[in-house]
């Protein structure tokens, strides 16, 4: 490190922090850089060294032969992916689920956090808070079997009630392709909402009380306080969460979807992640799965940077 520079007084850090020369900056912010090092080392060692593995998307990777021994096949796996007869359907199904996630799953924890924020019975608030994150701990297998308990055409509790009220033909919710997406979204809502709510609750904990006082002075009611104080306070968190979510938009929970797929609903159920699994069963998925991962990654990068740009255009801070 550059040590030949005379150390400027610490207090001077405040003045003229805009354009210091490189060496001077390094010294001036030495403590900040020092704090950065362990984390940076982590990312290099455990995230970037393994990324050499991405090359197998262009190989016919055989684990035993390793990177150097496996055969190079160029863009074969990408061709298989894009020109395969299933691509259009997989893309469509994945995008529809992604869209439903944005519309229903993303806002849910924000709404719940705001509702909890308005709750003034403390004991109730605490109990509900500690209850709603329980589903995060139950595996998809259990979620799936609970879904059957509710919706099975044979013994489904909820399906039975609905049938009694509505009448008509019994609907096989878990088998029919048109019910697949609603059920998946319901499952995701149930399992993840409470968990993500915690992040927004933490953000709400940081809201300055005086802002509420001031709003009240101005005669703002609850609705307006929510709109003009609470929401703006957690807006940065919402923006960050939205941008981050966009990066993984095309990732679906494989196990969840796999468990709810059957011979009748495959037309709507198959997404990239489940199809990759079937390719894996048949031919060993390393290279193909990596190619799919790269494709999703490129899409994810575009989405992240795109939404970050959009956020900034809209006057938000964005990620960086």
């Amino acid at each position: 490190m550059a040590t030949d520079l005379a150390p400027p007084p610490v207090k001077a850090a405040r003045v003229d922090r805009r354009k210091p020369s490189r060496g001077r900056a390094l010294w001036r912010y030495r403590w900040l850089y020092l704090l950065l090092i362990p984390g940076l080392a982590y990312f290099l060692v455990f995230k970037y060294v393994p990324m050499r593995g991405l090359q197998i998307a262009f190989q016919d990777f055989v684990p035993f032969l390793g990177y150097n021994g496996s055969q190079w096949v160029g863009f074969k796996h990408f061709e298989d992916l894009f020109t395969g007869p299933d691509f259009g359907r997989l893309m469509y199904n994945t995008l529809v689920l992604a869209l439903l996630n944005i519309v229903f799953v993303f806002p849910a924890p924000i709404i719940v956090a705001l509702m909890l924020n308005e709750l003034r019975i403390n004991i109730l608030k605490r109990s509900v808070q500690s209850l709603i994150y329980i589903p995060h701990f139950l595996s998809w297998t259990i979620v799936a079997s609970l879904t059957y308990i509710l919706f099975s055409v044979d013994y489904g509790v909820l399906a039975g009630w609905i049938h009694e009220i509505v009448g008509g033909q019994k609907i096989d919710y878990v088998a029919q392709p048109e019910w697949f997406r609603p059920i998946i979204i319901l499952q995701t809502l149930w399992k993840t909402t409470g968990w993500t709510t915690i992040i927004y609750l933490a953000a709400l904990a940081g809201v300055n009380h005086e802002l509420y006082e001031a709003a009240r002075m101005d005669g703002a009611g609850r609705w307006r306080q929510l709109w003009h104080v609470t929401l703006p306070a957690i807006r940065p968190t919402i923006v960050v969460m939205a941008i981050l979510m966009s990066g993984n938009l095309l990732d679906m929970s494989f196990e969840q979807i796999w468990l709810m797929t059957n011979n009748l609903n495959r037309a709507t159920a198959d997404v990239f992640d489940t199809f990759t699994y079937y390719v894996g069963i048949n031919q060993g998925a390393f290279s193909y799965a990596t190619a799919v991962g790269l494709f999703k990654g490129v899409a994810g990068v575009l989405l992240i940077f795109g939404s970050n740009w959009l956020a900034k255009r809209l006057g938000q801070r964005g990620l960086f």
């Binding site: 395969g84 007869p85 299933d86 088998a175 059957n262 011979n263 009748l264 495959r266 199809f275 079937y278 390719v279 069963i281 048949n282 031919q283």
Partner: peptide, 22 residues
């Protein structure tokens, strides 16, 4: 070929039979 194209080919008849039965 079954190895190469199984992921696409396998469900065709498997699903069709079930749909026929249903």
């Amino acid at each position: 070929t079954a190895v190469e194209k199984g992921a696409t080919l396998n469900p065709i008849v498997t699903d069709a039979r079930i749909k026929y039965l249903a």
